[in-house]
């Protein structure tokens, strides 16, 4: 039996990575998780310059999930390259760098800078709902999504994963647009825009008013979207949204994902990724699948 997956030419030892923004650059979680066991580590979004992010409160718990409006706080690409890449390179895992920006030029600057660096894949976040200027502006319009994919691809040396927003009418159309722009893979879903009101204080719970909903509550929506995207494009899909058990991950794979990311569940149990990897392996053994690929998208 073989847990390896090949995502756009990059071989991961298993199909499990962590969702951007929930795992930092791995250092804090490395006390709880042997990073060598992960298929890949996907890092927190990084921009060309440092971003301070949103005011607090930045997170809230909701039934079966959470909301966040961290606002892409990040130390900027210089510190990231100097500190975080060397840290992750000590481990036998793939490095996926998530990139954010406010303009096409911002994204391209980061991607160009990373071309020189020893990282394996780039994930371009065009779907952050928590930052006005950036991200989502590209993620809700197929033409804009295609254009930014093309622009980024010009500078990229590593395979490019375009990260899609669920806050759209047709996820299939968005997936096709980034595929047409040259994306090597797509990942989805980013968080779904939500709102929570404190009825005692009679105001918004999050300082940003709205925030992105994630966690088990969004899982069925994510499975549906992965299914639709997988049936619309040929490039591999990295599925995420509410995965907290091996069963959730397997569902996503059967719907069409070639690999999966675990996000919010890391907050409930920092070692959950290891349980998910072991659980997928057990399922494959029991069900007689000899590769992850053989399971991908078989539910039609």
């Amino acid at each position: 039996m073989n847990m390896k997956v090949n995502i756009a030419g990059v071989e991961w030892k298993n199909p499990v990575t962590v969702a951007s923004g929930t795992f930092g650059s791995g250092e804090e979680f490395s006390e709880f998780v042997d990073l060598n066991r992960l298929g890949a580590v996907t890092t927190k979004g990084v921009a060309n310059v440092p971003w301070s992010g949103n005011p607090t409160p930045r997170v809230a718990e909701v039934y079966g999930g959470m909301m966040n409006a961290v606002g892409l706080q990040n130390p900027g690409i210089d510190v990231f390259c100097r500190r975080d890449i060397p840290f992750l390179r000590k481990y036998d895992t793939k490095i996926i760098v998530n990139v954010c920006g406010r303009s096409t030029e911002d994204y391209c600057e980061v991607v160009e800078r990373l071309a020189e660096e020893d990282v394996d894949m780039l994930e371009i976040n065009i779907s952050c709902p928590n930052v006005k200027e950036g991200g989502i502006a590209f993620g809700q319009n197929p033409k804009a999504a295609e254009d930014i994919t093309k622009a980024v691809k010009k500078y990229a040396r590593q395979p490019v994963i375009m990260k899609l927003s669920p806050n759209v009418t047709s996820i299939a159309e968005m997936a096709k647009a980034v595929e047409a722009g040259g994306a090597d893979a797509v990942s989805l879903i980013n968080t779904i825009t939500g709102m929570k009101i404190d009825i005692n204080r009679k105001t918004f719970v999050l300082a940003n008013r709205t925030g992105g909903v994630s966690g088990p509550a969004v899982h069925p929506i994510a499975v549906r979207m992965v299914y639709e995207a997988a049936n619309a494009v040929r490039v591999p899909i990295i599925g995420m949204g509410g995965i907290s058990t091996a069963e959730d991950a397997i569902e996503m794979i059967l719907a069409g994902a070639s690999a999966v990311s675990v996000g919010t569940a890391n907050f409930h149990n920092p070692a959950v990724t290891l349980e998910i990897i072991d659980g997928i392996e057990r399922y494959m053994e029991q069900q007689g699948f000899d590769s992850v690929e053989a399971m991908t998208g078989i539910v039609k």
Binding site: G24, V70, F267
Partner: peptide, 16 residues
């Protein structure tokens, strides 16, 4: 005091 998500320094929820 601030709202937390990871509690270990990774998610940047709890800043001051």
């Amino acid at each position: 005091e601030e709202r937390m998500a990871c509690g270990i320094g990774a998610c940047l929820a709890c800043v001051c």
